[in-house]
Amino acid sequence: MPAGVQSRRAARVREVADIALAIRTENLTKIYDVGWGRQHVGIEELNLEVETGQIFGLVGPNGSGKTTTLKLLLGLIFPTSGAGEVLGEPMGDPRSKNRVGYLPEGPYFYEHLNAPELLRMYGSLFGMGGAALDARIQELLELVDMWDRRDYRIADYSRGMLQRVGVAQSLINNPDLLFFDEPTSGLDPIGAKDIREVILRLRGEGKTVFLCSHLLKEMEPICDNIAILSRGRLVTEGSVAELLRGDRLRYRLELREPDEELLAKLQGNAEEVLWLEETCRLLFADRQAAFDAAAQAEDEGGYVLAAGPDRRTLEEVFIDAVGEVSVDASDL
């Protein structure tokens, strides 16, 4: 068999096998030399799998390694060890760049251009041109609501305008995979909502979106899957629904300042009791126990605030997960 055919076949096999994965990393590690022999861990032993067609959120506090991961995947920096693949090619491979879009954190562009000129320059890097490019530019600027302000020089842009144009430039080549680093930071609520809508629309078009953010409230409604990073390590990972539910679904009863007598009676069946300021939250293993306790509390003059399935917010998940690691770290 000629070598050409063989390698084409190998490529096809690879394509089929990885079709569902847009990004995969394997023990990806980046350690920075800070100088004088000191080192700083960027990320450590990171294993990620991002399926195509989903919105994937990489969350974590500042300095947890989100941007490091992004830069590694884009080939802007090089791993200390481990490997990764983007759209079936090794990270940083020029072949994948045609199908990737990137919005850096706090983007900035050549000041002397206006938005259409900037997009034309970027578009021409992909070999685009002519009327098709002009149409694409108009489409994108309308998408990010910048078409009316297209004559402004970038030097005169506000932070929000920069962010909008940043989104537009990342979409110029109609990429299959998008990397957004803190896409809504610095935006007003309306701007943030606009960007979220764009992201959801992209998923609707079958694209994969890789989001990095520390704004959990904004990630919660739009992400399909989430990975939480802390100090360069993957703390927890999974679909948003799973994470919010926890390991198993429990039921909660919330009372307002129950007296000690009542609390002592109800506590027997509860798995856990939590005080959140003047609210007392009791967690039960099954539905029946929770509602029985609620009825009992009503009967005995307690003030029932709520009863129902116990869903956590992403923030709680995050604090739980990151908190654990912090304890681990301080024990070391």
Binding site: L76, P94, K97, Y122
Partner: peptide
């Protein structure tokens, strides 16, 4: 950070 957008394109 203008370099990021450039190098993430086919350059």
């Amino acid at each position: 950070r203008t370099i990021y957008t450039l190098l993430s394109k086919p350059v």
